[in-house]
Nucleic acid binder design. Structure first.
Lengths: 140, 140
DNA sequence: GTACATGCAAAACTTTTGCAGTATG
DNA sequence: CATACTGCAAAAGTTTTGCATGTAC
């Protein structure tokens, strides 16, 4: 039987078992919608053991199903990657409602080259986050 | 009497006291050279109480004397800002030796505009980190 | 049926707080 | 000499681990 949900399929295909607690954690993350911490997930799924929440989140992180978002204040939270977008991308975080949008970086190449030249570093990865106010919060 | 060290002067001028533990923490940070965590500092200055290390680091962060660096794996560490460079800047982290170089972002404006247009966000802050290998490690 | 996954509880960490004593400005 | 700061120890919070039990495949 083939699995309908793409995330559950990815889990299964990578050799991991599709268990009730894992489904519960995934559903919770979808319900939370925005970014969340392990504590958020645990709180919204009290039936799942604390350790399992951490173990599941670590697994999902390794599989690139969730990704880290670094907030303005340095706190690190997580977010489900958008469908088929386990690609490299960045985040814009709304400081009012917490909404996060993703975007792909194109123009960053130039900055990267400049920095490589100026510092002598060979750069192979980066992290970029923007902070501001989303259209809705901005309008108010 | 005027204070020779620019950081100590900044501390004093902002209405804080120049105490032995604070000097010890600052000296330790300079010794560590690179980025460090609260634990690194505490470990290198056993004479200073644990709580004081945390309180001092919080203070230095508020005064923009140290800044956060987010590592590749999401861990957040700290680093002394370079002299007179409490300005906005970014970091390139060597994944081999841990060395961190700072740089100012110029070309980021274009990326920022693109993202603002594409997402509808009004962007007022950002965070950018590059990861790679420094010239020395790269040469080896 | 077997290996993987879970839940629980304890352990290991990290960071914060209350308070009595100390020392800076 | 007032009050900002410190150290200690306890508390609060977070993440990990060991182990017996359960369950997906």
């Amino acid at each position: 039987m083939s699995i309908a949900d793409p995330i559950e399929r990815a889990l299964s295909r990578s050799g991991h078992r599709l268990t009730a607690p894992r489904r519960a954690v995934l559903d919770t993350m979808r319900d939370l919608g925005n970014h969340f911490t392990a504590e958020d997930v645990q709180h919204a799924s009290p039936a799942v053991g604390r350790a399992t929440v951490f173990r599941t989140m670590k697994l999902l992180r390794d599989l690139d199903i969730i990704c880290q978002v670094v907030l303005d204040d340095g706190a690190v939270v997580y977010q489900l990657n958008e469908e088929d977008d386990s690609q490299h991308h960045h985040h814009v975080v709304c400081s009012e409602c917490g909404k996060v949008a993703e975007f792909a970086s194109d123009g960053l190449e130039r900055v990267l080259d400049d920095v490589a030249r100026a510092t002598g570093f060979e750069i192979d990865a980066h992290r970029l986050e923007f902070y501001g106010r989303c259209a809705a919060c901005h309008a108010r």
